[in-house]
Design a protein around this nucleic acid. Structure first.
Lengths: 215, 215, 215, 215
DNA sequence: TATGAATGAGTCTTCATTCAT
DNA sequence: CATGAATGAAGACTCATTCAT
């Protein structure tokens, strides 16, 4: 990821001013979209709200994105990509499997806190998934990546005899599912429970169940 | 639940033919709404789609519900109520805590399978929750009920020394979160994994971690 | 044609009030469209102009026609059909070929005078013809019908030895072309020349050239 | 016509390089406009289509023409002028009236074939004529010129006793109308009839009717 | 001169809701 | 109670034109 970022930064400095402007404008529009859509939902958000929020004109927005839907999809990709990159950051981590799992879990937590404002957006996308093949496929890719990272960590744990000989696939699903579910509960009732507590116990429970029992 | 149904049936037989018709019409409308909304989402569904699906006229629908939103809310309540009733059915169950937990878990599973078609509807409601106090409160109530049932079972397990002395609240959240999360993953990628398998391992993992260790 | 009209009238009286209303509304809309489109052209005409001219609401217009283009096409058909029926009226005429030709020619003249206001509409349609297969085909059908009527009259003239042994096809084209061309010139410069005079001489010239020369 | 062209060429060589560039650019724009407008019609053609077709930028086009309408008018003038020049070429011809008429007729034929692609453009202009005084006047001028040339030829024929003592004005209208009408029919149904055949017979018919009968 | 990003008034169309019958 | 024609406010999108660079 770091390497990637460096390359990306370099790329930015290499692009023409014109391309830089285009990138800026697109970010400007997606920033506005993120704010407006997460506040009002895709359907209740008006293009005029994007105009007001972005400070651009209607025409300018349509110059960069051909439709409201295109903006939604671009926003999806941006959120998606950001999360993917955040996840990739953990791959390189070395340490015991449990440490890696904890780092990953904490990253996920941090992630969710950070993208607190994106959660409603996220459920909009999920609601879309049943109707839009394209969205569903992207979400599948996203979770697949997560699963693979976790599977690798769990396999590491098994190999290094930290963990019992569990099924890595199912175990990974358990971890991911747990986090997603907890996030959902927290989204519905953010004041009802503290996020950290909400997170730690279930994680420890799962971890506990796969930790190599002394014999 | 059964008792309830009996009561409901009695109620039906006690009401006047006029009221009976009204209830039938409302169910007709909500049936159509369930189908149409789950297929197209709240926003892409047209009142004319409800007309076509229900076989009623536009005027008839507006006779029984004052707006599209009222139908959405009534549908929410119906889904909500059905789930609540399904959950209540387990309260009376007697058996060991682990048995009850398993029964509850299987009910949840059965539930989800049964309401497979309602899942997209569910995520629409969740997406709504961040913008509509009313929806959020109902969802909170729904999960609160679930939590309380689980807490009771877990407390039973602790009291009867089946389970370790875990925190009932957090443990309940872990179970609920796990199921919700797994459901979400399955919703995104239904073909990717079998539902039963998807469900059993995580459940066993959690259960394993709270089961009283021999000392 | 008369028979047709009678049937049509009967049909009207047989249709339900609902269908009658629909037909009235559609005529109302096409009447407004005729006025507005002929005055402003298809593109400069606004749906709001149709609203104002028809006395109906926007929604009512869209209830009966799904788009502006659908109205244009329906208007085309109405104009087209009216002209076709007017032409058919002449078929039954008996008399010498020359008389029939003159009747037909005068009908065409009368027709054009009557549809003076439709001429700009006509040229809009003709301009459309190069881009819209559908329009082109309808116009082709229209002129085909005209040609066939004329061919029949000319063949009658040849058979009855009123006319020389000319090629009926080409001769028919000459007559039709002449009338269309004269109409076009008159459309461009209506004050520049009187319609009757504009019409008679060319007609007589053509007629003269095919009249059986005494030998 | 040739003389004119020579003058034009001289003019070009006399102007400054700056003016020469301007003339080139304007032709470039009108060339693109001719292509785009005849393919898509005035209304469906976008300024961006002109940009793409001309290879110039938006700004450049607006540098040379202040509006889309100005381009339409300039294009009209260019087409108009070209046709006028073609017609003028015949004025000088000497020969019998019938020869001149035939030359003129063949020129018109050639003209139409040559401007086959411009016909839809032509009908766009004609459709415009009813709404735009300016366009109507130009078209009137155009046909007036044609009429005058024909009148001169016909008067020549009468004077030289080739033709009967017909009314030159009406006879000219007959010839022009005939050609315009035939062109229209061919535009609607180009495959339905061959152009040459479509043209010759009517012409011969008219000619036949005015040719001096032997007495 | 030339560019093309930006503007924003103007359009068609949609669709929840109403109401005369 | 029921119908479905009618309403009209509202919204996404277009595109001729402008103007900073």
């Amino acid at each position: 990821m770091f390497g990637y970022k460096v390359i990306a930064d370099r790329l930015v400095s290499l692009v023409s001013p014109k391309e830089k402007l285009e990138q800026e404008r697109r970010q400007q529009i997606l920033d506005a979209a993120e704010t407006v859509f997460s506040k009002q939902g895709f359907n209740d958000a008006r293009m005029d709200d994007l105009v007001a929020e972005s400070g651009l004109s209607k025409g300018a927005i349509y110059w960069y994105y051909k439709s409201k839907d295109a903006i939604i999809m671009a926003l999806f990709d941006r959120v998606f990509l950001t999360e993917m990159k955040a996840a990739e950051a953990i791959i390189d981590a070395d340490g015991t499997a449990e440490e890696n799992l904890r780092i990953f879990s904490q990253a996920a937590v941090a992630d969710i806190r950070h993208f607190e404002r994106l959660m409603s957006l996220g459920y909009e996308f999920i609601a879309l998934a049943s109707r839009r093949e394209e969205v569903r496929e992207k979400l599948q890719g996203y979770y697949k990546m997560y699963r693979e990272i976790l599977i690798r960590i769990i396999e590491q744990g098994i190999t290094e005899e930290e963990f019992d000989n569990v099924d890595p696939q199912n175990t990974a699903m358990a971890f991911i599912g747990l986090y997603e579910g907890i996030a959902l509960l927290w989204f519905i009732d953010p004041l009802g429970l503290e996020w950290d507590k909400l997170t730690e116990t279930p994680f420890d429970m799962l971890l506990d169940s796969i930790r190599k029992k002394e014999s």
